[in-house]
Every structure is written in structure tokens, then in C-alpha cells.
Nucleic acid binder design. Sequence first.
DNA 1: ACATTTAATTTACATCTGTAAACTCAGCTT
DNA 2: AAGCTGAGTTTACAGATGTAAATTAAATGT
Lengths: 147, 147
Amino acid sequence: MNEVKKIDEITHAEWQIVRLIWTMGASSSRSIIDAVASKRDWKESTIKTLLGRLVKKGLLTRVKQGQHFVYSSTVSEQNAMNLSAEELFKQMCDMRKGQTIMDLVSQSKISKGDINQLVKMLNQKLKTAPDKVDCNCLPGNMNMDCQ
Amino acid sequence: MNEVKKIDEITHAEWQIVRLIWTMGASSSRSIIDAVASKRDWKESTIKTLLGRLVKKGLLTRVKQGQHFVYSSTVSEQNAMNLSAEELFKQMCDMRKGQTIMDLVSQSKISKGDINQLVKMLNQKLKTAPDKVDCNCLPGNMNMDCQ
DNA sequence: ACATTTAATTTACATCTGTAAACTCAGCTT
DNA sequence: AAGCTGAGTTTACAGATGTAAATTAAATGT
């Protein structure tokens, strides 16, 4: 059930674009350009280049819709977010991930519902949690597999 | 009290290097090269280039120690991890961060101590948590400020 | 049909990344 | 003193990224 295609790294500039598409749903380059341009002053060209690259990366697909194309994303926003976060975490020290998660929790707006789920999951996790997680930053146990 | 210098993005290759330094403490390029080479088959040159770039980025400093240099990091590992995670989160949709944190929690080894802290913080946070966090992916409320 | 508008494709170009060879300079050997 | 060594510096080079102008092709107006 985990049909998670390995997402090619999403760059800063690209996030701006895909987020719009996730939220607006399938869209023409026109509406994307307008949406982006209203906030970021990127030239049309720039946005088109980005759209092209995203298609090439496989993060977006497009279908001819009359004269222009309609772009839609191939991965859900939640999936992309999770994968990107996991990707970042993979290259960091195991021992300190708990604290980094603390930091994220403290900095993020989280709904009551999500908080409750989190607490539930954590309590579950607590049952089998180790007293201490070892640092894995030295070669041999380092995750150098990423990338 | 938050003397957090804005960390220049740390790249994949660079993480490998800094993690060693964080763990081994101040080290000569020799020991870094040996440590890395034992796992990754990067040429000495490569590692030297990376060290140089890290110094230029301000993530490492070095002091002449006899004939060679000793490198040490200017930011703590925890700090770097937190900032990098925050950086990534900044460009993502507010509404779904809770779930992404869930995902991270589910994928990460976390010690009992950290879990307890997390639960505590979450329970605290619950008191003032919103029922729903709004999506901020459309221009106007999107965080396009990053970078 | 011809000019104009729109959209997509190609080309551009500086900087950053991954990866490394070549070169240089201060000591160490002999 | 002359060469070897270890460590740092410079140069290299392809692919990724941010940013966009130029070009081509299709659609529409008149």
C-alpha cells in the first residue's frame, strides 16, 4: 500500500509552484502564473521553466486541454511533505531527532486533532522506547546511504 | 538569548562532514579524511574541497595547530538540525505540518525521555490549540519569505 | 490572409554542488 | 642541498538551480 515514488528533491522555487497546484488543483499555466506573480515577482518565463522542470522531474504531469496544458501533481501534498522531511531526517543524527521534533512542535501551528493523535502515538511508542538513542554520526553506523 | 546565526543551507555531502566534526570534536583534516574515507569512498581532495566550502560558509572555523589546521564547527549539531528542519517546514503548508510531524515521530527512534517531554509539550499546546489550522498555500498567506 | 496575442520551447547564464586532479609550499629525509 | 611528504590552495568540470530573454508555434481578431 505504500506506492511512494522516490521524489526527486523539491527545490525552494519549486515548492512555491507545487503548493499552488496542490491547493488549486489541476491548473493551467496561466492561472499558476497569475497566482505566483501576485506575490512573487517572478517573470512568466521563470514560472514556465519551473513548470517544465517539475514535469521532467515527474512531480507534475500535464494534459493538453484545448490549446493549453493543465498541470496536476503526481504526488499528494502530504506525501511530498512527509517524504521531504524524512529525507532531511535521514541525514541527521539519530540521537537528536527527538529534540528536533520538539523544536518543530514548538514552532508549528498544530490542530487539537493532530495533537491528540500525536499524544496517542507517542504514548504507544513510549512502551517500547529505549532509554537512550545512540548517536550514529561516526562511519560505520552513519546513514550515508542517502542521496 | 537566541543567538541563532542564519545557517547557510547544508548540503548532503556537507552533512557527512560536519556530523563527524560534531561527534569527534575539533579535528584535523587528516582525521576527518580518514574517518570519511573509511565509509564513503571520497578522495582526499573531495573532502578538502568540502572542508574549504564549509569554512567559507561559516559553518566551520579552523585554527592553525602546529603545521596543520584544526577544524571545529561554529554551530551546535542540535542547533543545525533544528534550523534545517525549521527551514524545510517554512516552505510547507501549515495545515499539514501536524501530520508530517506524526510521520517523523513514527519513523524516528526517540528515547523515553524525549517522548515524555514531547507529550508534556503537546498537552500544554493542546490548551490553546485551534480546532483547525488553515492552509496557507495560496499567495497572500503563503510563506514565500524563505531564502 | 495578415497582424496580434498567447502559450510553449529553446537558449542563456551565473551560482551552487558533487567530485576530483593538479599545483604549491613548508618540513622531513638522506 | 635535493627530493619526498603531507597539507592546503587552485583549477576543473558536469549537472542542478534561480532567473529570464528570445524564439517559435498556435489561435484569434479584423
